[in-house]
Amino acid sequence: MKILVAVKRVIDYNVQIRVKEDGTGVVTDNVKMSTNPPDDNAIEEAVKIKEAGKATEVVAITVGEEKAQETVRKALAVGADRGIHVKVDGILEPLAVSKILQKIVDKEKPDLVFMGKQAIDDDCNQTGQMLSALLNWPQATFASKIEVKDNKLEVTREIDEGLETIEINFPAIVTCDLRLNEPRYASLPNIMKAKKKPIEEIPASDLGVDVSPRLEQLKVEEPPKRKAGIKVANVAELVQKLKNEAKVI
């Protein structure tokens, strides 16, 4: 069984995001970038399944600019076997990414595609679902537990009402929640080994996918500043304020 895992390069979650003065986007120059956190969970789960003898190969793929390759390298350092880097410069929307992933799926023929539930940069929460539609494969989103049963997956999903457990057939798409597992550290020897693992570079133009944006971005601005908090003396005052001032209870 082969698992394809999609990893995206985003601004590190600890970084204070700053909006560009002209409102065209956020500042990314000299800003620490990392793998989108739930994508780390997706890789971890795929590697665990392989370690349990239930998969034979884990392939990590990223779509993006030159430097995005770092995320594939990192995936290789925590256990993916090989990588694919589809090179695209400029703005990428979920539809374009899922179309590219579709082409790669056609070529690689994986049994499962693991992805993050959403990317923390634009929070779209769309790529997995769109890919599922394009491929006409079943999907399990927001997975917090995955069990492989022969040619089937039992997936526990984080939903508003609590947890939902579903069963889906192979081939399938799973988008992963942060609660799925605790990603491992990349050890020094594994980082060294990862440098020797192959990464196939494919220019997006070779795939014949139209990646031009379908959305027009009007403006990026900071959320309004929150007012400073106040201290309350006791619980009674808190309840009173929540009731009468905030009117939330």
Binding site: E182, P183, R184, Y185, S187, L188, P189
Partner: peptide
């Protein structure tokens, strides 16, 4: 030697424990 990774606040190894490496 590099720092051990994945030690909890009481000094126990977590599941993610990764020992330091000697360079």
């Amino acid at each position: 030697a590099t720092q051990d990774m994945g030690i909890d606040k009481d000094g126990n190894k977590k599941d993610s424990f990764e020992p330091g490496i000697e360079l």
